[in-house]
């Protein structure tokens, strides 16, 4: 009896080892992976908070009493509150057109939407300076009418919109494509108007990905550095967003101050990662829900 159990146990071990590497190799890989991640990921993450708290909790909160820091925080929020809704509208419009209709050039549009991701942030800012700056074709006209775009809020918002444009669209397009048009068609046959169909049928089906897209877009909008750096003019208290303020503080050797503001952005990044994990869990199990091949369960009446 005992030999039987022993044999079965060894058999299980043997089967498992068929498709896995030796214990030594396994541990070597884990150590390598964790070592690499520690060096390049965990340590930098921890550093933000340890540096911010170098002067203790009091020192941490003092950093936020600085009016320039507060102005920077306000500007970042303002920029995001303008950029995100606009990109949200774009994302929904583009995803609706792409997912629910067949038209010439659809694939080209999908590829085009990824362009801002491929462009260096400095270039993203440069193009707006060339378009609206003092030396541009529009420059004199803008100066005449006292409209400031570069080195002012509009320029910052534009550059931020450019850089974060694809995020919401990229979340929605594949999802809406996989969901098809049938539910919308059904709603129309039942008498719903276009708007009713969108709000009552489409929107609930995409809500989690939409939420994540907005969170991601917001985090990237508040954290954008390179593009905003080009168009901003770095005027303290006026045209500095949080990342730019971090740079200023750091260059003034105010490490604690810089890391304190940086910690806020880091927390935002962590919230984004948490949101992603939660939403991935929410959207994965519903795949089986609309599997048309699923027919009667055995033993249940039809």
């Amino acid at each position: 009896m005992s030999t039987e159990i022993a044999t079965r146990g060894r058999h299980k071990e043997w089967k498992a080892s068929l498709t896995s590497e030796s214990v030594l190799v396994r541990w070597a890989l884990i150590v390598a992976a964790l070592g690499y991640l520690t060096l390049f990921l965990f340590v930098p993450l921890a550093a933000v908070f340890t540096e911010a708290l170098k002067n203790g909790l009091e020192g941490y909160f003092v950093s936020f009493a600085d009016p320039d820091a507060l102005a920077a925080i306000r500007l970042s929020f303002l920029t995001a509150s303008l950029a995100v809704p606009l990109n949200l509208t774009f994302g929904i419009a583009a995803a609706w057109a792409i997912a629910k209709f067949e038209f010439v050039g659809k694939q080209i549009l999908i590829t085009l939407i990824d362009i801002p991701l491929a462009v260096s942030p400095v270039i993203s800012g440069l193009i707006y300076v060339l378009l609206f700056g003092a030396q541009s074709w529009l420059g004199p006209w803008l100066a005449e009418h006292d409209i400031k775009i570069i080195f002012a809020l509009p320029g910052i918002v534009l550059a931020t919109i450019f850089v974060t444009l694809p995020f919401i669209a990229r979340e929605l397009i594949p999802l809406m494509q996989s969901q098809g048009r049938e539910e919308e068609e059904a709603a129309l046959t039942l008498g719903a108007s276009g708007w009713q169909t969108f709000t009552r049928v489409t929107l609930p089906n995409i809500k989690w990905s939409l939420l994540y897209g907005v969170i991601l877009c917001n985090a990237r909008a508040m954290g954008e550095f390179g593009a905003v750096s080009v168009v901003s003019g770095h005027i303290r208290g006026l045209t500095n967003t949080m990342p730019l303020h971090v740079e200023i503080l750091y260059n003034e050797y105010n490490a604690v101050g810089a890391f304190a503001v940086a910690s806020l952005l880091t927390l935002l990044a962590i919230v984004t990662l948490v949101a992603k994990t939660i939403i991935e869990r929410k959207t994965a199990p519903s795949q089986s829900a609309h599997d048309p091949a699923w027919s009667t369960q055995p033993g249940h009446p039809a």
Partner: peptide
């Protein structure tokens, strides 16, 4: 529809009443 096209986020009751609710 062949593949039912039920509104996946609505209950059976909400699905059936949909046409009446959008009047």
């Amino acid at each position: 529809f062949q593949h039912y096209a039920l509104f996946r986020h609505m209950t059976v009751t909400e699905n059936v009443s949909f046409g009446l609710r959008v009047l």
